[in-house]
Amino acid sequence: MAILFGTQEWVDALKDALKKSQAYKEAAKNWEGDLYIIVEPDAAYKNRHILYLDLWHGECREARVITDENEKSPKYRISGPFTSMKQILDKKVDPVQSMMTGKIKVKGDMAQIMKMPRAAVELVNCMTAFETVFPS
């Protein structure tokens, strides 16, 4: 059953996918740091979503929808307009290329990200491991 993007149910499904993914566990075994995924409104969609993931050595310790951006001070912030995020989840564009062309912005300890580029790729793979329906 398709799950609506940006909801707590969607974030729970992502947490479950991360738990099941051996590839993610392997790629992120040295990863330390929580992150916000911030979906910015654009011409196609007017709402803003903040998803919080606490990722630690291949495990997802917490995953939830955040309403107050100041609630946490995550180590990383990945943000981009809704349309760019949707293209990634639809597997129409490569997530790393999106970051390299500035469609998706990344803030945080870049040295760690550069040591574990596959962790980012496997995280996105987990996001596409279940069926997502997008708000119209």
Binding site: V96, M99, M100, M110, A111, M114
Partner: peptide, 11 residues
């Protein structure tokens, strides 16, 4: 920017 921090996401 430390050399090890050079990354493809800096624009």
């Amino acid at each position: 920017i430390r050399p090890e921090e050079i990354n493809p996401f800096i624009s």
